[in-house]
């Protein structure tokens, strides 16, 4: 934990933290900081904030530390933390909610993770299904990791597991429309939530 100037934390910061907890369906006060979530996390070694610390900073209203953290972007969404928490705090959902809040605040502390998911959805929007070979290729291009997994790509080709053919769903235009409507509904919900938060202030 870093030392924190609590008087520098504003009401708006606290509300932003509460909003994240609300999105995740979590009551931040439930967490008594036992650290069991962190103990079981398979990626804790690589995180800048331990899962326990993410909750702690949210409790304290330290929104900026949380939104800038790499942890939620490294998190594999494996749900070990939530499943083992003695207080039933759904930390995995908190990670997801933090990451979305961070993304919507225009941040991407681990650009690769953001690029991967965006490319994945773009791939599904274009074809209705995910074409792994093109996903990997575009991901490498955009993330700048040009040679990543190239050896494995060759091995996949040799086994006939992937090929140049693009798979498409018949109704891919319909899938694209579903994606667009879902993202519109998402934007509406967020706009409404921001309005209520603004109204409270």
């Amino acid at each position: 934990m870093r030392s924190l100037n609590l008087s520098a934390i504003s009401d708006a910061d606290r509300r932003a933290c509460e909003a994240i907890a609300g999105e995740a369906g979590v009551n931040l006060k439930d967490c008594y900081q036992c650290g069991k979530c962190t103990a079981g996390c398979p990626l804790a070694d690589s995180m800048d904030l331990m899962p326990r610390e993410v909750i702690r900073y949210l409790q304290l209203g330290a929104i900026d530390i949380v939104l800038d953290a790499k942890t939620p972007w490294i998190c594999a969404q494996c749900v070990v933390c939530s499943s083992r928490c003695p207080q039933n705090v759904d930390i995995c959902s908190v990670m997801r909610a933090v990451r979305l809040a961070s993304k919507h605040a225009g941040k991407r502390p681990v650009p690769e993770a953001d690029i991967f998911d965006d490319e994945f959805i773009a791939n599904v929007r274009a074809h209705g299904v995910s074409n792994e070979q093109y996903l990997a290729a575009f991901y490498n291009l955009k993330s700048g990791h040009l040679m990543q997994d190239m050896g494995n790509a060759t091995r996949m080709l040799a086994r006939g597991l992937v090929g140049p053919a693009i798979h498409n769903t018949k109704g891919r235009a319909n899938v694209a429309a579903v994606i667009d409507r879902a993202l519109e509904a998402d934007a509406e919900r967020r706009a409404k939530a921001a309005e209520t938060r603004g109204g409270e202030a």
Partner: peptide, 18 residues
């Protein structure tokens, strides 16, 4: 169509359901 897997969940809750 593709289920969206964790990429959808990490993009939007509405998308993950849809």
């Amino acid at each position: 169509n593709c289920c969206g897997t964790s990429a959808a969940a990490l993009t939007s809750p509405e998308l993950a359901v849809a």
